[in-house]
Design a protein around this nucleic acid. Structure first.
Lengths: 151, 151
DNA sequence: TATTGTTATACTCTATAACTATA
DNA sequence: TATAGTTATAGAGTATAACAATA
């Protein structure tokens, strides 16, 4: 028995996309928004940017605020408030460097425990949002995004 | 004559990336940030999102606020202020629909002129940010982003 | 009752400019 | 002089909750 394709509800036909669908910038922005929503819904502790920041400190213990800001393409004044929030939650600490203008950054024990938990959730999140991609497609996408924006 | 590879400045060695570089979400966010910066620097009139909104209205004259909000994955209350700003600049107009709860949206003549100019700049922007990609790679990236986040 | 547009409000993320301590 | 961190301030961009008009 043949089934008719479900008709689009008259109140919600798809909008025409114009030239929009052919713009890398548009696709990138939409994809990022969707990933952000999934991340926020499944990992309430941290935003993607904050999680990335903790991972960078973990991989570079003692990094200074300015170098971290530079690596994340943020202004160093922006970094201050971000670190304040994470420090007040007990996840990282600042220690005065031998150059006494600088603060070195370290994860606390609590920060390491949080990050371990968050990483597991990020792995689930990644699997979920890339569910429509094969492993080869996922690798190719990573490669192409890397070309678009090298480290 | 051999030239030595330029040494990284001792004050700015690259940070270790940890597992970060292998996350689609991270790459996506970084790429989007870089594209946003290039867009803002080269197209001062509009943000990427606002330009996309005008293109959607152009492709769907008379679309209602709620349908546009749905298509852009924004709350309809968010749409109000966005449209207020674009309308006050004289780029679009609201017209009461036959269902008098709704507003239909149209570009004004000024809006069409602006959009034509902006589209040319967007084309330059796209060419610039995808300069490291071949045509085939660009097409493949569009396809993969489309899989990640279908219309 | 349900939907559309609206207002009031608040939160997150980010930047700029000017300050201070140190180099 | 130059750099690291800081503060004050501002501006996007977004959401939630409650309301009036209309269906």
């Amino acid at each position: 028995m043949k089934r008719r394709a479900p008709e689009p509800r008259p109140t919600a036909p798809r909008l025409a996309q114009g030239e929009l669908s052919d713009l890398i910038g548009y696709r990138l922005r939409r994809a990022q928004q969707e990933l952000f929503r999934d991340f926020a819904a499944s990992i309430p502790d941290l935003s993607p940017g904050r999680a990335g920041l903790l991972m960078l400190i973990e991989a570079n213990p003692g990094v200074t605020q300015s170098r971290l800001a530079q690596a994340m393409a943020l202004d160093r004044s922006t970094m201050v408030g971000v670190l304040d929030a994470l420090e007040s939650r007990g996840w990282l600490e600042r220690r005065k460097g031998s150059d006494r203008r600088t603060n070195g950054l370290w994860l606390t024990r609590g920060g390491r425990l949080l990050l371990a938990r968050v990483k597991r959730r990020i792995a689930d999140h990644e699997a979920r949002v890339t569910a429509r991609l094969t492993g080869a497609e996922r690798a190719r996408l990573l490669m192409l995004l890397g070309k678009l924006c090298p480290d």
